[in-house]
Design a protein around this nucleic acid. Structure first.
Length: 426
DNA sequence: TCTGGGGTCCTAGGACCC
DNA sequence: TCTGGGGTCCTAGGACCC
């Protein structure tokens, strides 16, 4: 039996220094300047321009540690502005869908595109065109890697990042071993810190070695995920392309506090707010939660004050997305694990075992449920129109001393007409 | 003084059953 | 009281991703 092998062509489009690119979009004079964006609470550095990378500022480095270099080199600093990044991200994704509506949005700044319809000869040019259209329409520079499997397109993308054209295709290359040899094992998708240590112990230092090692050995001494990675390096697709957006299975809202918290009352307010956030989020996706976990902890970096961390899970009698029920459960969980005398640094809420909303329409649903549902709906609508927390619950408090620190926010709100930058005609 | 937040998946081990 | 094998289901924790 003979058949023609149908070769997939998967492109990975990745926005360059995404958060920094979003911020500089509205401040063109920052082009080619060192710029960084900080995580929530201005804690860590999570995005760097090339110039900032060149200064030796590390990804994930705490801000206070990099402060010297930042001041000395006049690095521009921004607090993170997620609604801006989310908005720009949607514009980029919408643009990508022009080339193939079946895209897999992998993260806020990355998407996989199935380009199998294009021929081997034209594929690199298609990549270049995608790159230039995205740049022209959204102002965001990207890197594009194209290959037979997702893992290989990640490799290609890694190489593209360092190229002037920003595009690398591994399609049609007979022997990719010389290319894989130059890719460090820890730069392979799916190989993190622990696996890197494990591979090093076994004399494996680059992607070529992983590709050519026996599969049974990997399965035996590691796990199926690792063997999947190796297969993908061989050009055999094992990780599915997920066109349809599958519903999430959990929803987390957690934050570090702007300042340490010691009082139960304040912790309660924070937890209540996270619950409101989380329940609104799952309502907007028509999901209900079967259980809730809350956790609190002190700073792991300040042991002199004593370390305490604990969590508590509660199952709902009937899965719910009702803010009032969720807050109530969370607070009773908090009463369970709260201890006096600690300086709390972080807390969070996890809604788990999420399922579809309509599963709830069973024999237990009553007129009362209907009333609550429509109440929740009108809260969501009002908050959507007048800003989050226009309507809230009493337990959510008003002081919010625990709120995040955002000292360096650009305050650009693409949803706010009046803060849009003005463009003067010449 | 200052160290992010939000996800998914796999595995080992315990509880329980026959 | 101890002895056994084999199966399922659930959970906590760890590893990974961005």
């Amino acid at each position: 039996m003979s058949y023609t092998q149908y070769t997939k062509k998967i492109a990975l489009v990745d926005c360059n220094s995404f958060y920094v690119s979003c911020e500089t979009l509205f401040t063109p004079k920052l082009k080619n300047k060192p710029v960084v964006v900080l995580s929530n609470n201005d804690g860590c550095i999570v995005s760097r321009s090339n110039e900032a990378k060149a200064l030796g500022i590390k990804m994930g480095e705490p801000y206070f540690k990099a402060k010297d270099i930042i001041i000395k080199n006049n690095v521009q600093v921004f607090s993170s502005n997620y609604s801006l990044y989310g908005d720009i991200s949607r514009r980029v994704m919408r643009t990508l869908k022009r080339f193939n509506s079946d895209i897999e949005i992998y993260s806020i700044d990355e998407a996989f595109l199935d380009l199998s319809n294009f021929s081997d000869n034209e594929i690199e040019d298609v990549g270049k065109e995608i790159r230039s259209i995205v740049l022209q329409w959204t102002g965001i520079p990207t890197s594009i890697g194209i290959a037979k499997t997702k893992t290989l397109s990640k490799v290609a993308n890694h190489i593209a990042k360092k190229k002037e054209t920003g595009v690398t295709s591994l399609i049609g290359i007979e022997n990719i071993d010389p290319i894989l040899e130059k890719v460090d094992i820890n730069d392979v998708w799916g190989v993190g810190r622990q696996l890197t240590k494990f591979y090093h112990r076994n004399g494996i230092y680059n992607a070529k070695q992983l590709k050519n090692i026996s599969n049974t050995w990997i399965k035996k001494s590691s796990n199926v995920l690792s063997s999947r990675t190796a297969m993908e390096l061989r050009g055999i697709a094992c990780i599915d392309f997920e066109k349809t957006t599958t519903k999430r299975k959990s929803c987390v809202v957690s934050r570090s506090f702007g300042q340490r918290i010691e009082k139960f009352q304040e912790l309660k307010e924070a937890i209540a707010n996270y619950c409101l956030n989380a329940s609104e989020k799952i309502r907007s996706e028509s999901l209900i939660a079967k259980s809730i976990t809350i956790f609190i902890r002190t700073s792991p970096f300040q042991s002199k004050f004593g370390y305490y961390a604990n969590s508590k899970t509660i199952d709902f009698p009937i899965a719910t997305n009702n803010s009032i029920e969720i807050v109530k459960a969370a607070i009773s969980a908090l009463e369970n694990i709260f201890k006096n005398g600690y300086r709390y640094q972080k807390a969070g809420v996890l809604l788990t075992s999420l399922s579809n909303d309509d599963d709830k329409k069973n024999l237990f649903s009553s007129e009362k449920d209907e009333k609550i549902n429509s109440l929740m709906k009108s809260i969501d609508n009002t908050n959507y129109r007048y800003g989050r927390s226009a309507i809230s619950l009493a337990s959510a408090g008003v002081q919010k001393r625990w709120n995040m620190k955002r000292e360096y926010s650009s305050r650009i709100d693409t949803a706010d007409f009046y803060s849009l930058p003005t463009i003067k005609a010449i």
